[in-house]
Structures are given as C-alpha cells and as structure tokens.
C-alpha cells in the first residue's frame, strides 16, 4: 500500500514566513483566504497531519516582531500574541499584573507543548477545554485584532461565539491581548479537575474578584470544558456580589450553576456528572479565594 494512504501526513501546502503583520494579511488575502496562519502550531499541526484541515498556504507568523513582548500600557498589560505559554510562568510582569494567567499556565498541556504554544494562538483557536481562552473572560480582557480594514479591539465577553467560532473574520489575526492590571484589592483563584495532569480538564474554573474588606464588590468566574465555549457563570457571580464569602454564600453560588451551565452530552462524562464536578470545583476554588489565595 502506498505510504501516502496510511501515514499521518499533511496534504501538500506552500509555506510563507511573514516578517510583518501587513505581509501576513496580504498573503492570506492573495491566497483567496485558503490559507492558515501558524504560530506555535501545537493544535494546528496535528489537525493538518490528520487532514482535518488542508489549506493551500501556511503563513508562519512567529517571526513578526510587532506581535511579541509584554508591557504595561495605560491600565492594561499588553501581552503580544506570540507570547509562549512557558513565558506565562517565567515573566515577572505576568506574575505581578496578570497572576491568574501565571496560576493557570502549569495546567496547560505539557512542558514541551508550553515551550511552543502561544497565547494568541490558544485564544484564536478557542478550544472550549483550554485554560487561557476561559481566563481572558475572567480577566475582562480585550483582544486586539488586525485585518484588512485596520485594527480593532474586542472584549473577551464578545469574542467567543460558538464551538471553535470567534469574532475573528477570515484573514484576521490576533496581534495582542490586553489584560486590566491586577490591583491590590483584588484576589484570584484557579483549579481544574482532570484524570491525569496535562490532560484536557473534565471541568476547570478561574476567577477574579474585587473586595472591599471581606465583601465582594465584583467577581468574574469563568469555566472551561463545560460547554461549546468558555463560559462565564453570571448567576453564580450575582449571588456572590455584595456579600462576604461564607459557607452559605458558597452553597448558593454552587446551586446557581444549574441555571448557568447546560453541559453537552458526551461519551466520557454525562451532563449531570459534569454539573456535579463543576459544583465541587466552584466550592473548592471559592474557598481558596476566601482564604486570599
């Protein structure tokens, strides 16, 4: 049998390494949009190898300097789209101003994947089981998008539309993600439940809260692996705002999840099981938030 029929190999494509954002956008447009941008490639390369995708052109964006770097800009931390997952662990600016991302990073895949995978790539793919897209929701992040008509910024709340579907239009590129700077009166917490470390989570959750003393003034809680998109649980959030974190409030937030989440059926975990796990996890992570974690 011909090896082509059996091997796990991508269909033939052309390769172009872009030096600037404009070059990358131009190449995409001129390939008639039958092109894919590649950054870390940790999800795209398997998809190509399995021939789930077969573009005629691959545009390598990893050498575009404008998409690198982490810096403060006004009240935000601007994280270049090409920032690698491992940098979320090593960069002091992340630990200081976006500590929720720092806390979530060790849970993202495995070390060698984190060495190549990029923040912008993870958000662009919008895998509902991934940690970082969900954390952009909890952090009220804004996503900077470059396209043929210029650059725009989209709130994370408006970015994730459906399964692997986002506000990105064909040929558009995420160039950076803006995270509001972490403040002294805020606390964060993160955890996930997975069968093995590095596996996709059965359910995961991260949160950012603003406190006035022990009273919660504002809280954003985002779940992943519970739906077709990363999901904010607004009912649970509402039960917590204006109160301190006691056992009764935590129980009320857990109860509210039933209205917030409608997990899809899957071979692996039933909807009821996933909802149960989400409740357990929410209680655990809120408990940690109460301790000031």
């Amino acid at each position: 049998m011909d090896i082509e029929e059996t091997a796990v190999k991508a269909r033939a494509f052309s390769y172009f390494r872009a030096a600037t954002i404009d070059q990358a956008l131009d190449a995409h447009a001129r390939a008639g949009d039958d092109a894919r941008f590649i950054a870390g490639g940790q999800s795209l390369v398997p998809a190509l190898s399995l021939r789930l995708q077969a573009p005629r052109l691959l545009i390598d964006i990893t050498h575009i300097d404008e998409m690198r770097g982490i810096r403060r800009e006004g009240g935000y931390l601007r994280i270049g789209a090409l920032t690698r997952h491992c940098e979320m662990l090593s960069e002091p600016l992340i630990a200081e101003f976006a500590p929720l991302l720092h806390a979530a990073a060790p849970f993202v895949a495995h070390r060698a994947i984190r060495n190549r995978g990029t923040f912008g790539g993870s958000v662009a793919l919008a895998d509902p089981a991934s940690e970082f897209p969900a954390m952009t929701l909890a952090l009220d992040a804004e996503i900077e998008i470059a396209g043929a008509t210029g650059t725009r910024r989209v709130k994370a709340d408006d970015f994730f539309l459906d399964l692997f579907e986002t506000a990105l239009q064909p040929g558009e590129l995420i160039t950076a993600i803006y995270i509001p700077l972490f403040k002294a009166d805020q606390r964060f917490a993160f955890d996930e439940l997975a069968r093995r470390r590095g596996d996709y989570a059965l359910v995961g959750c991260g949160m950012l809260a603003t406190f006035a003393g022990e009273r919660i003034d504002d809280i954003r809680i985002s779940f992943f692996s519970v739906s077709n998109t990363p999901t904010r649980v607004r009912g649970a959030e509402a039960t917590l705002i204006g109160s301190s974190l006691d056992a009764e409030r935590i129980a009320a937030a857990q109860a509210a999840l039933e209205g917030d989440l409608a997990p899809p059926d899957s071979d692996e975990v039933s909807p009821a099981m996933r909802l149960h796990l989400a409740r357990v996890l929410l209680g655990r992570v809120l408990g940690r938030l109460g301790e000031g974690a």
């Binding site: 398997p46 060698a112 190549r116």
Partner: peptide, 25 residues
C-alpha cells in the same frame, strides 16, 4: 500528534515535539 513525547528535541535550548512542527519552521 504531540501526545507521546518520543520525538522531543531541543530547539533553541527548549524541549519541543519535532512531530509538531514542519522542518521549514
């Protein structure tokens, strides 16, 4: 497909899956 780790090499000093990138990259 990046699951088993048998293909790890060092690329610019970091361990990466050599099955998860094309040689041109």
């Amino acid at each position: 497909m990046g699951a088993c780790g048998a293909c790890l090499v060092q690329l610019d000093g970091r361990a990466v899956h050599s099955c998860l990138m094309f040689a041109v990259q």
